[in-house]
Amino acid sequence: MTRLDLYVCREMVRYFFILLLMVVVVFVVVDYLSNADRFFAAGLSGYKSIYYVLLKLPREIIHILPLCFFLSILAALGMVNRSNELIALKGGGIGPAILLRPVFAVAFFISMFGILLADTISPMASAEVNAIRYGELRPGAVQVQRKENIRIRKDDFFIYIKEVNLDDERLEGIRIHELKRDGFFPVRRILAQSGFFVDEGWVLEDVVEQVLDRKEDGVFTVRSYPAFAFDVGLNLSDFERIRSAASEMGIRELWRYMHKIEREGFDVTGYRVDFFGKTAFPFASLALCFLAVLISLRPSMKKNMAVGMGYGIGIAFMYWICYSFSMSLGYGGVLPAAFAAWMPNCLFAALGIYGLLGLD
C-alpha cells in the first residue's frame, strides 16, 4: 500500500469506529429503557437485563456496519475534498479513481467481518437472547424452534404438527393424542389434514376423531368431520419463536438444515431467502462504497458537508427499504431467493459505478 492508501484507510477506520461506538451506545441505552418494564415485571436482575441487551449487539452490529462505513467514507473523503487535498492530488496527476483502492479494501474487510459475525457469534448470541426472551420474559410461551416436525406436550395432550406456516396462519399434518390424567393410555386421538388459527384456538380440517368407548375397554368410536374446533390453549403468538429459528443458525448450519428438510419434502423458500440474505447483506458495504465515494468527491461536499452526510443517510435509508421490499418478494415466492437477496447490492453498486464514470 502507498502512503496515500494508508492515510485514507486510517481516516476511514477512525471515523468508522467513532460512528460504530456512538450507535452501539445509543442502541444499548434505548433498548434497555424500552424494555425496562418487561425486565422489572419478569424479575430479571440488573446484570441479567444488561446481559440480555448486550447479547443483541452482534446481530445489530451486522445491520449497522454498512451504514457506519458509508458515513465514514463521507467523513474521511469529505475532509480530503474540503481541505483541498483532492486538488493537490489532481495537480500531482492522480485522479480521484485512485481513492477507490483503499475504500474497496476496507469495504471488503468489513464485509468479511460481517460474514464472520453472521456465521459464528451472532447465531450463538441470538439463541441465548431467545432463551431468555421465551424462558424468563415470556415463561408461558411454547418452546418451538422449527416450523417442521413439531412435537408439543400441553396438559394431557401430546401434539404433533408436520408444518406451521406463520404467514398464512395455517397448520399442516396434525396428530393429537389425549391421555388419561392418571396414566399414559390414550383416550382420544385426532387426525387432521390441516387447520388454521382463530382467536379461540384452532379450526381443524378433514378430521378423523377416535374416542375410547368407556363401556368397552380397548374399543374406539370413529367419527369424521369436515371441520372441527379445537382449543388446547395454543394460539398464533405461542409459535412466534419459529420466526427466530434462522437467526439462531449460522450460514453453514442454515445451508445444511435447508437441504435436509428439502429432501424430506418441506417447502424451504423462507430458509432459502434467509440463507441468501445472511450472505448478501454484509456485502452492502461493498455495494454502497461507490456511491459514498461519488458523493464525497462532488464539489457541493466541499462547501457543505452536512448536506452530503444527509444525502448519505437518505441513500442508506433507501437501500434498507429496497432490501426489505426485495426480501419480502422473496419470502412470497415472487422473486427467486438469490435474486431477492442480491438485487439491492447489484442495483446500488451499478448506480455508484455509473456515477463515478462521469466524475472528473
Rank of each mutant, 00 (worst) to 15 (best):
S122W: 01
I295Y: 04
G43K: 01
S83Y: 15
K90T: 15
P282F: 07
C322P: 06
F196R: 15
H259D: 13
I174G: 04
W202L: 01
F283C: 03
N345D: 13
L33Q: 14
R59K: 15
H177W: 11
G183Y: 14
Q210K: 13
I261S: 01
V13P: 04
R138A: 11
G140M: 03
I73N: 08
Y271M: 11
A245K: 06
R252L: 14
A131F: 08
L86P: 13
L297Q: 14
L4Q: 13
L286A: 03
G308T: 04
E178S: 05
L33N: 14
G183Q: 12
E216H: 12
S194F: 05
E253L: 10
I62C: 02
L297G: 14
V129Y: 07
E172C: 09
R38P: 06
I152R: 00
E209P: 11
C68R: 05
P96T: 15
I261Q: 04
I161Q: 00
A337V: 07
P336C: 11
F339A: 10
G355C: 11
R243G: 06
A75W: 01
R3I: 13
L234Q: 07
K180C: 09
E169K: 15
F109C: 04
P299A: 14
V24A: 12
S296H: 06
V203E: 05
L21M: 14
V207H: 10
K56I: 01
F104A: 14
N35T: 07
I115N: 01
I50T: 10
M318L: 15
F275N: 01
D31P: 11
V232Q: 12
G270S: 10
L286E: 00
L234C: 05
A75E: 02
R153W: 15
D199T: 07
F16W: 09
R243P: 01
S111C: 03
W255E: 11
F185P: 03
I190V: 11
A141D: 09
I161P: 01
L99G: 12
L89T: 06
F228N: 09
A316W: 09
L44A: 02
D37T: 09
L351N: 13
G277K: 08
V208L: 03
G312M: 13
R181M: 10
S237V: 11
G233T: 11
V164G: 00
Y271K: 09
F283D: 01
G314W: 01
P299G: 14
E85Q: 15
G358C: 02
L294I: 12
T279H: 05
I94P: 08
E11K: 15
K162I: 02
I159K: 01
Y331H: 13
I315S: 05
I261P: 08
R59E: 00
D360Y: 12
L86H: 12
R241F: 06
V24N: 12
E11D: 15
G46W: 12
I87G: 14
L171T: 09
L166Q: 08
V198K: 05
R252E: 06
F108D: 02
L291G: 00
G310P: 08
G114F: 06
L89E: 04
L335V: 02
V307A: 08
A125E: 00
A141F: 09
K147A: 06
I295C: 04
L204V: 10
D231V: 03
N84V: 12
Q210E: 13
D119F: 00
L236H: 05
P226C: 00
G218Q: 10
Y323G: 02
V207R: 09
R272L: 14
E209A: 13
A192H: 04
F281S: 00
Y257A: 07
P139S: 01
